[in-house]
Amino acid sequence: MRDGLEETAAIPEHPRPKLTYPFEAGPASGEAIDVAPGVKWLRMPLGGSLAFINVWAIEDGDGWAIVDTGIASPDTAKAWRAGIAGPLEGRPVTRVFVTHMHPDHIGMAGWLTRKFQCRLWITRLEFLMCRSLAADTGREAPADAMTFYKAAGWDEEALETYRSKFGGFGRGLHALPDSFQRLSDGDTVRIGEHDWQVVVGSGHSPEHACLWCPDLKLMISGDQVLPKISSNVAVFPTEPEADPLAEWMGSLRRIKGRVPDDVLVLPAHNDPFHGLHARIDHLVGGHERGLTRLRQVLAEPKRAVDVFHVLFRRRIDAGLLGLATGESLAHLNHLLATGQAIRERDASGVDWYRAAA
């Protein structure tokens, strides 16, 4: 699933932290920028509002360890061929690390690992969840999902659109490798001349792996910490009672307590930046303020689709309806889990939320 709502997520109008960006511009397609000794920054095309994803090449003996891969497409394959022949000097890929299972991150992992006969390194939950979602390709939309979105307040047209488009996740992936090397929180992985620590977060995805190198003062953050947009945190039909917002905010607080503020953050979207702790504070604070506003709006009963204006800055059209609904439900579920809201289902199967007394 693409993170298409990231740029619409409602961090309220509040002074943004003054982050610093050491690079004037990012690399062009097929080119690379050195961000530290032995670490290169490349970009892979995405199209749409996000335009590209940042990927990273870390010198690893005679070749390169790659972190994140881009979505599966002919344009991405072309960009990889140019990058490998050009700034990566034709040297082989030794390992492919993937922060998490969204197609813009893992989409080309199967292509790269097969081309270079190397191993995929990923957390277990991300690998298994990716395989599970890819297996839905071509399936009909399950009844549970239709019930889930009807309860959120979707009309018949929206439900029919969902039904017709269900099972598209796997179209952004090359076939996954059949095996992987597991990453776990707290692992230390030697890549080339330096140790990198695995720092796991959750909420945006089940077991998202960041890579932190104390020697180089770098953290590859994936989608866990982005400088200008807020990652989508959503509830999906597969786990309708989940509280991913609690996981997300808790993960960010743990990262702040573990990773020093002097790192250069290498995010999946936007540019590398300094100011990790300030950005984490801003992200957590934004969601906390959103929860406060949401509880106030629930003085009168509301459906999930009725609270978009509280959580998002721009109008939610049909293309963003699924992600907006999932993120709204993440906030509503958090209020339910903390005893701040009550949910009641009416006779037509629609859920109504109101603030607890």
Rank of each mutant, 00 (worst) to 15 (best):
F127T: 06
L320M: 07
R114V: 04
A134W: 04
L50N: 12
K18V: 07
P267D: 12
L50V: 08
V235F: 00
D68H: 11
Q117S: 13
L335W: 04
G339P: 01
I342F: 09
S205V: 07
V233E: 05
R279M: 05
A209T: 10
E247L: 13
K115N: 12
I84V: 14
D155S: 01
C118S: 01
V67S: 14
H194M: 10
A278N: 08
C210F: 07
P22S: 03
E13G: 12
D243T: 00
H331K: 04
P103C: 08
G107Y: 08
P27M: 04
T20Q: 02
E13C: 09
F23N: 00
L329T: 00
R343S: 02
A299S: 09
F308W: 08
S49N: 13
P227M: 01
L311S: 06
T94D: 06
K18I: 07
R2Q: 15
Y162N: 06
G339K: 00
L133G: 03
D215K: 15
W121I: 02
E327W: 09
R253F: 08
T8I: 14
G326L: 01
D346M: 07
S73E: 00
P237Y: 04
D346A: 09
P240H: 00
F23K: 02
A85V: 09
D60E: 08
A337M: 05
R295S: 08
A9P: 11
E13N: 10
S164G: 09
R124E: 10
M219W: 13
Y21K: 06
R354I: 07
D346G: 11
G167T: 00
A318G: 09
H100S: 12
P103Y: 14
A175H: 11
R124V: 08
A341R: 02
T94M: 07
G172F: 06
F116D: 10
L125N: 11
T76H: 02
C210D: 08
E89S: 11
A51M: 14
D136L: 15
E247H: 11
G110E: 06
D68W: 04
L5C: 05
S29G: 13
E7M: 15
G201K: 00
L120I: 04
E31P: 10
D351A: 03
Q181G: 13
